[in-house]
């Protein structure tokens, strides 16, 4: 077994996912608890909508559970799971259409918590403005870089593009933002 595979297999998340693949629900629950905040943050900032973000996060974990029996720790779990979240976010935005249903789906009761509502409202208006100026792929690259601290190589894997393309996305994004923001002269 290659050395990097051995070291990666020691990753707690990878082990939990492997156990989930054999039907261990407690392992899957721990995996959810450990990774839901990062997935939620990425989805929320990308979609700018808590309900849509929750849909994406739920679907991402269900996809993860479905793929658990096939998971092999040849890549970091973080990159593997980010690929799922990123793909769902990009698809969600590109295929966004109304969903008709007879029964209203259950949602997180965010409306009852004024602090949460205020938090959502105040969540970086400046950030929202900045993100809305960016095309979807540039926005995702920026979020992975600056929210999650991914390297170019990790972003490339998560978005299924080359590292050079990541550099190009970030560079063009910065140019757009610099033209939108009015920085005070230093």
């Amino acid at each position: 077994m290659p050395e990097n595979v051995t070291s990666l297999s020691e990753d707690r998340d990878a082990l939990l996912l492997a156990r989930a693949g054999t039907g261990d629900f407690s392992a899957f629950e721990e995996l959810v608890r450990r990774n839901q905040a990062a997935a939620w943050s990425l989805a929320f900032h990308y979609l700018s909508d808590p309900i849509e973000a929750e849909d994406v996060v739920q679907e991402a974990f269900l996809k993860l559970l479905r793929s658990a029996p096939r998971y092999r720790p040849i890549a970091k779990f973080r990159t593997y799971f980010s690929q799922i979240v990123v793909r769902l976010c990009l698809d969600f935005r590109s295929k966004k259409h109304p969903v008709y249903c007879d029964i209203m789906p259950e949602r997180a009761d965010m409306g009852s918590n004024p602090e949460v509502l205020l938090s959502i409202k105040e969540t970086g208006n400046e950030l929202k403005r900045a993100l809305s100026d960016l095309p979807t792929t540039q926005r995702m690259a920026f979020l992975l870089r600056h929210l999650d601290g991914f390297t170019y190589s990790e972003i490339a894997k998560a978005m299924n593009i080359s590292a050079k393309a990541v550099d190009s996305l970030l560079q063009r994004g910065r140019q757009t933002l610099r033209s939108q923001f009015h920085f005070s002269p230093k």
Partner: peptide, 17 residues
């Protein structure tokens, strides 16, 4: 980007998932 804080994760998200 770094100042942008996501709202807290819905308290029942784990249970829903």
């Amino acid at each position: 980007f770094q100042e942008g804080i996501a709202p807290p994760v819905p308290s029942d998200l784990t249970q829903r998932i």
